[in-house]
Design a protein around this nucleic acid. Structure first.
Lengths: 215, 215
DNA sequence: AACTTGTCCTGTCATGCCGTCAGCTTACCG
DNA sequence: CGGTAAGCTGACGGCATGACAGGACAAGTT
């Protein structure tokens, strides 16, 4: 479907080339975890990968281009997140467990890919369409299934009509993303990890069902 | 209290110097609004301010340093945000109005200072202590007053003891910040501004009081 | 084994930004 | 009017960028 991997100058990349390309992506990913995005230089990535800057430019137009590549693969991977919500019940104790699982799964996913998601967030906030398309794809799986859940509850009359399902799902997802990206930011307020999750669980449950979760 | 403004090489800045300095800050602020943070160059800022790069380096160690400066003044300004919550009632119709005012005021503030806050967010997420200290100061005014509100409701028995006030306030504030920073991100989901605010209002009210707002 | 073909990598170069310094100009003050 | 400190900039070495041409290499062909 995606055709073959191509170099910037149009050649088709072979086995060896793809390996080099992948190595560059891996190194970039690692560097993003340890130094500020603004300071990541092509030459450093190339050095770390044991190759030269010129090679980097054969496979990517610039650092941003390479980040987009990584983010894209992340977007594909994120499809599995919808299983955190799809087909789960929001009633009684099961509802609480669903909310808990969603919070937990989402936070874990975010933390695992922190470095890339930071850059995606920035790009999207800056209005770059390529980045916010990817951000949307990543959040979409959760957002869509949450929207469905709320719509369903609404049709059963268990949630008020004043709620806009898509808006509510979006707000909750953005909240989770925001918290995941700034977990350290809670420490100065004296909030520990262990207290954060129950709170988020409660909020998600409240948002989706309009009711507090069962004990 | 803050002593005098000083140049990087230790001189005291006079009237003229402070003007130049301020002009550089203004130009930087404007550039951050129109081009990606990663691409903002000292030379461009200097040119725009009608001066030379060397002058820039007299007043700031680097671009980041200048951004911190702007962010700092923003942090001072943000103190007024606490009035959105402090002394307001969370009961009945007044409660709804309080939630509404908070959402509205917060979103407006965030949008007005979008460009800088984006960079602060990134810096904080990347673990830079200077940035996340500032981010905390900005969110603190709202966060603290919200925490107080929740504690008070809790002491009156109107909110369950299972809620951790600081964690709940933090989650709500982060949600607002997240939504404010990605308002465009909702469009592809078919969510309009007008639908977003009521949803946030509802969530804030639910989070603080545990109950839906009055019609 | 020599040749061919197409992929893959690197040396090199022009360009432009970074960050610093010495030194010139301007403003203020006695 | 001369001294002093503030304010600004030209110029420079250093480094990243991005483009290109040519060499190295693997695989198949004769």
């Amino acid at each position: 479907m995606t055709g073959q991997v191509r170099t910037v100058d149009g050649r088709v990349a072979g086995r060896r080339g793809q390996e080099t390309r992948q190595k560059l992506l891996d190194c970039l990913r690692e560097m993003l975890g340890s130094s500020p995005y603004r300071d990541v230089k092509v030459i450093d990535v190339a050095r770390k990968a044991g190759t030269s800057p010129a090679t980097f430019y054969q496979y990517f137009p610039d650092v941003e281009g390479a980040v987009l590549e990584i983010a894209d693969s992340l977007a594909k991977e994120s499809g599995s997140l919808k299983e955190l919500v799809q087909g789960k019940s929001w009633a009684g104790k099961a509802g609480r467990a669903t909310a808990e699982g969603l919070v937990d799964g989402f936070l874990t996913f975010w933390r695992r890919n922190e470095a890339i998601l930071r850059v995606v967030d920035l790009g999207a906030a800056e209005g770059d369409k390529r980045f916010y398309r990817i951000r949307m794809r990543i959040l979409n799986s959760v957002n869509n299934s949450l929207t469905e859940s709320i719509k369903e509850l609404q049709s059963k009359g268990r949630v008020g009509k004043e709620v806009n399902p898509a808006a509510m799902a979006g707000a909750l997802v953005v909240m989770l993303a925001g918290v995941a990206g700034h977990q350290k930011g809670f420490q100065p307020w004296g909030v520990k990890q262990a207290q954060l999750k129950p709170t988020l669980t409660q909020l998600v449950h409240l948002g989706v069902t309009g009711r507090k979760p069962a004990a």
